[in-house]
Write a protein that binds this DNA or RNA. Structure first.
Length: 900
DNA sequence: CTAAGAATATTTTTT
DNA sequence: ATATTCTTAG
């Protein structure tokens, strides 16, 4: 198929989505497009890393890859022609600023570029948890100043919620607020006549019923002393009183009065809704203001903040056309992965870019737009993902959608099982096909009262069959279940790798220490109770101390109650970074560190959501250990496609009285049911060889699928294959084994606060990267190239400074001796889930030397850690000796630091 | 056997 | 908020 500029793939699970993305991207390169003009966006760092890795691997081994033929076809060239240009394309690709990232990072980059237009500093940090306490303080302050305290109190009373719940709701609405009409309820009046009318009618009904001389039960039931009690009556929500104990004395007039009560109650609910939103939006506006002020003050933004700011900047400000123009000049091809998870806001930001591409004018001549996704795998509605966008956008831009129907991942038995399970359940489900060479496979559905017990039996039988632990993945519904599974399997002596999001501060033992520290600081009993509950003691066993130093206090506490474990020890280390106890108690919840990994190898445990986009040889999907949670959201959002239509205030039983509300509620229920089905689809399509479903009888997560215990196919016993070959290939670092470990230990961010210094460092690196050899002649050419690229953003004299520092490097005797060997620049390695780039890797016989250039010594400790990790990775991968050096290119000359 | 009403248990997914 | 269980009256 020749190149189609506007194209989308509807890619079911395992149908080669990444393959097609890679083919698309590489085809553009082979057609001569500049890598800098191609932007490929995904939703997770994992996916972005994998895509990048896949591109490099494909380019490196193009002659033996399936992508070759596909690329040749798209480019309308012969495979030989493609191969002849391979090394040139690879070089060009690696040397450019590759724009493969998550959509959030992409927006982050845009915001950094235009930060000053948005009124913030380009050096802003991104954070997941903002200063809760400070924000609350600021918000309450705003509320008071605006004279909205009454609204806040009223809201709390109206919804019978605590302030903290309200605060949570506000932060949810914050990310959605651009879709809302914040002034839409301003004119709601406060007068309430409906209650009186309902009560009057209720009294009338009461006399009517009492006059019939019915049973005590009937007489008691009809009595409603107050409006609140009236709302609790079951008969209020019945279509007629011609039932139960009222049946005996029923006459049609009773239903007429009942209808009047119901109409009045319905009006009351409407009024309550209007009032609620009026107050809520008044307060929300103040919340939004507080968030903005906090963001600017702390120079710290969340993902939501970034998206909202970029949206304001590009879609609402006057100069937005100019800004888009500046963006556009670099962007010609847009590739979007997992499109079904895009939010309305995200797409609204991208839309003008796509429109610009479609116009085909100027630099955009020959531009393209490509997206892949699968609405069946849309599981992020709760985060703003709107799957309806997929078809809506395709229609709007007149994009041809190509379905990918063949499953190249799972064995046929699994594919058939999935087809059976979801056919007729997911609307418009088309069965997947299975290629002949993938016949076989095994599926088992087991029903059990003791899920964990059945799980360990299943694991044991797999291991018995010769399956390696790292080929098994256990998928759970919740993170909590994941922890339970981890504990259970560890106790049985299995090695496990958890990838559930386990923040250090949410570990049991760590929580106990935090509650203790808070108790010491605040002297409020609640912390004492919390702490005691966490370590299983009675509150009077917890003593309060005046703590001079939180670290010492924590250690003493841990010793006294013997709660030391890996997490707590790591936490104590983290505590050392805090100034004093006060800082700890207020800031500790923002600590982003993850709890330490159990082991590097073993059975993988993760949530279904985390497993999206991954595949495993043997998958065990475990039913929910607890009961499913009912939704708690006080607001019902009514969507029509991707368009938010209306909000409703959730009131129990309101649907019986209010048909519009009932409709919205039904839509919401349907959407939730779809979410569940989609999550199930994701869960059951991760397996390659065998799939094991462990369900329970009551309140099962699998209930919508109506599964019954059975098994299909046969589990083939495999001879253990030698796994060492991958490691022995020199100079190809596909660190599969290390790559398994996802990003729980993420590389420390380089916290640099000086924008000019960052640019200077980048230019310096770029110069070194561009040098084909370490000679003065090569340096001249590299400097030229760096000047073209960074000249405009650097301060005067910076290029000369770079020249002098690089010159002292190539004249440095230590450098000359370290480089005397086979060397590689910009060597990418995948280590612990993130891709790292080693500036210079030199091989001296059977020893390796790692050199990392730095332009300043301010963060030497971090640099040492970073190089230390490279050394560890290279040593582990090659099985040979490795040493690392930090090469500081300082104004006064080169300084070396050896890292172990 | 039926329905109301009280009491009780349980309670996500994440860039 | 919701599902389940139990008690009670008819």
């Amino acid at each position: 198929m020749a190149f189609e500029p506007f194209l989308a793939y509807e890619a079911s699970a395992g149908s080669g989505k990444t393959f097609n993305l890679v083919v698309r991207y590489l085809s553009l390169l082979f057609m001569g497009e500049d890598p800098r003009s191609i932007v490929a966006l995904t939703f997770t760092n994992k996916a972005a890393n994998e895509m990048l890795e896949r591109m490099i691997v494909t380019l490196e081994h193009l002659h033996e890859r399936g992508e070759l033929a596909a690329i040749a076809q798209v480019c309308e060239m012969s495979p030989e022609e493609i191969l002849s240009r391979r090394s040139e394309v690879l070089r060009r690709f690696l040397r450019s600023d590759i724009q493969i990232s998550t959509i959030d990072k992409f927006f982050g980059r845009i915001l950094r570029k235009f930060a000053l237009n948005a009124g913030i500093m380009p050096t802003f940090k991104t954070t997941q948890n903002h200063h809760e306490v400070k924000l609350l303080e600021r918000f309450l302050n705003e509320v008071e100043v605006a004279g909205a305290s009454d609204a806040l109190v009223h809201l709390s009373r109206l919804s019978d919620k605590r302030l903290s719940d309200l605060f949570l709701l506000l932060s949810q609405l914050y990310s959605k607020h651009k879709e809302l009409d914040l002034d839409g309820y301003a004119g709601v009046n406060v007068v309430e006549e409906a209650i009186e009318e309902a009560m009057a009618a209720a009294a009338e009904l009461k006399t009517l019923v009492l006059g019939k001389g019915l049973s005590d039960t009937a007489n008691r039931a009809i009595e409603a002393e107050s409006f609140e009690l009236l709302l609790k009556k079951t008969w209020l929500y019945q279509p007629s009183l011609n039932y139960w104990v009222f049946k005996k004395g029923f006459e049609p007039r009773m239903d007429e009065v009942l209808a009047r009560i119901q109409a009045a109650v319905k009006r009351h609910f409407r009024r309550r809704e209007g009032l609620y939103f009026k107050e809520l939006f008044t307060v929300l506006k103040l919340y939004i203001k507080s968030r903005k002020v906090m963001a600017v003050q702390n120079n710290e933004l969340s993902f939501d903040d970034i998206t909202l700011m970029v949206h304001t900047l590009l879609r609402e400000k006057l100069e937005s056309e100019f800004l888009y123009f500046r963006l556009d000049s670099h962007l010609k091809h847009l590739l979007l992965d997992e499109f079904q998870d895009t939010s309305v806001l995200q797409f609204d930001i991208l839309r003008p870019l796509i429109e610009e591409i479609r116009s085909g004018i100027g630099v955009n001549e020959g531009g393209s737009f490509f997206f892949v996704g699968d609405v069946k795998q849309s599981i992020y509605r709760f985060r703003g993902g709107v799957s309806a966008l997929f078809h809506q956008v395709a229609e709007y831009f007149n994009v041809h959608i190509e379905p990918l129907r063949v499953n190249y991942r799972s064995r046929s038995t699994i594919v058939e099982f999935v087809n059976r399970a979801f056919g007729g359940k997911i609307a418009g489900y088309t069965p997947q096909m299975s290629p002949e060479k993938l016949s076989g496979g095994y599926v088992a559905v087991a029903m059990s009262d003791d899920l964990l017990e059945t799980l360990s039996r299943t694991v044991a039988s797999l291991i018995d069959q010769g399956v390696q632990p790292e080929e098994i993945a256990v998928l759970t519904v919740t993170n909590k279940d994941g922890s339970a599974v981890e504990e259970h399997l560890s106790l049985q002596g299995y090695d496990v790798v958890t990838e559930t999001t386990a923040r250090l501060v949410s570990q049991h033992s760590v929580r106990a220490v935090i509650e203790y520290l808070r108790y010491c600081y605040f002297d409020v009993p609640i912390y004492r109770f919390n702490c005691a509950a966490l370590i299983g003691l009675s509150p009077d066993q917890i003593e309060r101390h005046i703590l001079a130093d939180p670290v010492e206090g924590a250690i003493a506490f841990i010793r006294r109650y013997e709660i030391a474990d890996k997490s707590v020890l790591m936490f104590v280390e983290a505590l050392r970074g805090y100034r004093d106890l006060e800082e700890v108690v207020f800031e500790i919840d923002r600590l982003e560190a993850s709890s330490p990994q159990s082991d590097l190898r073993g059975i993988r445990i993760m949530t279904v959501h985390k497993s999206k986009g991954l595949e495993f040889e043997h998958v065990i999907v475990l039913d929910q250990l607890g009961k499913p949670r009912a939704h708690n959201d006080p607001i019902v959002y009514e969507y029509e496609g991707a368009q938010l239509q209306r909000l409703y205030y959730r009131i129990k039983d309101r649907e019986v009285l209010d048909s519009l509300y009932a409709e919205a509620l039904a839509k919401e229920k349907k959407a939730s049911a779809e979410d569940r089905l989609n999550a199930l689809y994701v869960a059951l399509t991760r397996a390659v060889e065998s799939l094991w479903v462990i369900t329970k009888e009551k309140s099962s997560w699998f209930a919508p699928l109506e599964l019954t215990p059975a098994e299909w196919g046969r589990l083939e016993k495999k001879e253990a294959k030698a796994k060492s070959e991958e490691i022995q290939r020199p100079l190809i670092y596909r660190a599969r084994r290390f790559g398994r470990q996802e990003e729980s230990v993420s590389a420390p961010k380089e916290a640099t606060h000086d924008y000019a210094a960052v640019q200077f460092g980048l230019a310096l690196h770029y110069t070194l990267e561009m040098m084909g050899s370490f000679t003065e002649e090569a340096m001249g050419r590299a400097l030229e190239s760096a000047r073209n690229r960074y000249g405009a953003v650097l301060h005067p004299g910076a290029m000369e400074e770079i020249a002098s520092r690089v010159l002292s490097l190539i004249q440095d005797p230590t450098f000359a001796s370290l480089c005397a060997g086979e060397w590689r620049k910009e060597q990418m390695i995948r280590y612990q889930g993130s891709i790292n780039v080693i500036d210079l890797l030199v091989r001296h016989g059977d020893e390796w030397v790692i050199i990392d250039y730095k332009s300043g010594r301010e963060e030497e400790q971090k640099h040492r850690e970073q190089v230390g990790r490279y050394v560890e990775a290279i040593a582990a991968l090659s099985g040979q000796k490795a040493s690392g050096y930090l090469c500081y290119l300082l104004p006064g000359g080169v300084e070396w630091v050896k890292c172990l």
